[in-house]
Structure formats: C-alpha cells, structure tokens
C-alpha cells in the first residue's frame, strides 16, 4: 500500500507540473488538429468514391488515425530526461534513493502521459466528429479502447526508458528514439491500419511489439471485437513484461558500469 502511495505521489506532482506549460500545451493541441486535417484531406482523396478499403470505411480510418495519434502525442519523452541525468551525473543520486529508478521514471512518465492524453482525446473526438461524423460503436468500444490506449502509453514509456538507459553507453540516444518512433509509424500501423499492408507483411506486423502501441488500441476502438481487445491486451502484457525486464537488465548493467568507473 505504501508503495502505491509513493508512486501515486510522483504521478500527482508531475500532473500539477504539467499544467504549468499552458502555451506549449495550446500550440501542441493546434498541431494535433492540423495533423488530423492533413490525414482527412489525404484519405478523402484516396477513398474518393470507394466505400471500403481493406474492410474499413473513411470514417473508421480517420478515427483510427486519431487514436494512434493520441497515443503518439501523449508520449512523455523520458529518454531525454534520463539522458540528461546520465550526462550531468545526477543519476548517481537517484541510485541510492529508496525506490527503483526505473519505477520512478515510469510512474513520472505515465503521470505526464495521462495528463496529455485527456485533452487530446476530447479534442480528437470533436475534430474527427466534425470532419467525418460519429464513429459507430464508439460508446461501447470506449472502455476497452481506453484500457489498450493506456497500455500503449505504458509500452511506449518502457521503450523510452530502455532507449534512455542506452545513454550510459552512447553520447546521444535521440537517433535511437527516431528509429523506434518510425518503426511505430510504419510497422506499428500509426499512419495507416496494418490491414492496408500487403498480405506477406500483415501477419508479422500484427504480432510485432510496435503494433501493440498503435494498431491494436486504435483497431479496438474503431472495429470492436472481444477478440481484438483480448489479443491486444495479451500482447501488451507480454511486451510490457519483456521491456520491463530488459529495462532492469540494462539498469543493472549500467549500475555495474558506474561502480567500475566510480561514477
């Protein structure tokens, strides 16, 4: 119980801290609307007179993209925080505090992500509604979709934790982040549903971890089925455990490195 309170407190502080960045927040929201607008313009042309592509309507595709963007734009870029702490050496103080460094960073990032997510969800709802109209089955899918969106956020956070810890071995981890981000863009189905992929790629892409950050949460929202939800959830749990493990292995290796070099 005490542990939960500890992480809840970290979460709460970040939540308040985030509210302070009002102007950055507003411009971020404008950018989100612009992205949806670009997608709308592009897909409207692509759909032309066709009703369905790969089994999805224009309405479904645009809502799908709104949800994948929600996960993407709610990201808290902790790899930068971690990299800075490693560079400045302030991570040494975090090592002997009575909490796990990885746990701390994850809780903090989730606090930030969820704060970012709520307005994006609302704004996305309004904007997409205005562009293409309501999403059939939205209300029913929402609770399940929110679970998977949160799971996707956690998955992304763990990716960024792993990437950030690489700063112990390399000067600048940003390029690793770019590559991770682009894998989500393409293989994760962030730019269009994996159903649009050529057949040979579809099966692989669906089971790679990237799909569980973007594709499965968004698909569950726009074409709800118990099967989709459960597949998404199972995959997320598996990959969250895996990335959590690699994160703690990386951290342990880093700790050894710090001890050898004397910080």
């Amino acid at each position: 119980m005490r542990h939960i309170r500890k992480y809840a407190k970290i979460f709460q502080c970040t939540f308040r801290d985030q509210l302070a960045y009002l102007s950055a927040f507003v411009t971020g929201q404008i950018f989100f609307v612009v992205i949806i607008f670009v997608f709308f313009s592009l897909w409207k042309v692509i759909y032309g007179k066709e009703g369905l592509i790969a089994g999805l309507s224009l309405t479904q595709t645009l809502w799908y993209l709104t949800f994948t963007e929600t996960v993407e734009l709610s990201k808290a870029r902790i790899y930068l925080t971690i990299q800075n702490e490693v560079k400045e050496g302030s991570i040494a103080y975090a090592l002997n505090r009575p909490y796990s460094y990885n746990g701390f960073q994850t809780a903090r990032a989730m606090g930030e992500s969820l704060v970012k997510m709520i307005p994006i969800l609302i704004l996305g709802f309004v904007t997409t509604l205005l562009f293409v109209g309501p999403l059939p089955g939205y209300a029913r899918a929402l609770p399940f979709g929110l679970v998977l969106i949160t799971g996707g956020l956690l998955l992304n956070t763990l990716w960024m934790l792993n990437i950030g810890l690489l700063a112990f071995w390399t000067e600048d981890v940003t390029p690793f982040y770019w590559i991770f981000q682009k894998l989500i863009f393409i293989l994760g189905g962030m730019f269009f549903p994996i159903d649009f992929f050529p057949d040979w790629l579809q099966q692989t892409a669906r089971s790679l971890p990237f799909a569980f950050s973007a594709y499965w949460p968004a698909l569950t929202m726009v074409r709800f089925s118990r099967h989709a939800f459960l597949t998404g959830l199972t995959g997320q749990v598996v990959y969250i455990i895996l990335l959590g493990l690699t994160g703690s292995l990386l951290f342990r290796a880093a700790q050894r490195k710090v001890h050898v070099q004397g910080g």
Binding site: T170, E171, T174, P175, F176, W178, K182, F185, F192
Partner: peptide, 26 residues
C-alpha cells in the same frame, strides 16, 4: 563529438526513409 555527429546524420536519414515505406505501402 564525432560519433554523435555521425549517429545524428545517419539517424535523421534513416528517420526520413521511413516515409518512403509509408508511400510505397500506400
């Protein structure tokens, strides 16, 4: 910071290449 320079340049080029796949698939 030579290594960082090379990684950044290659990383950005790779980053952009992702969009080739987007348009190819589309």
């Amino acid at each position: 910071y030579r290594v960082s320079f090379v990684i950044q340049v290659l990383g950005m080029a790779l980053n952009n290449s992702a969009f080739i796949f987007f348009w190819l698939l589309l």
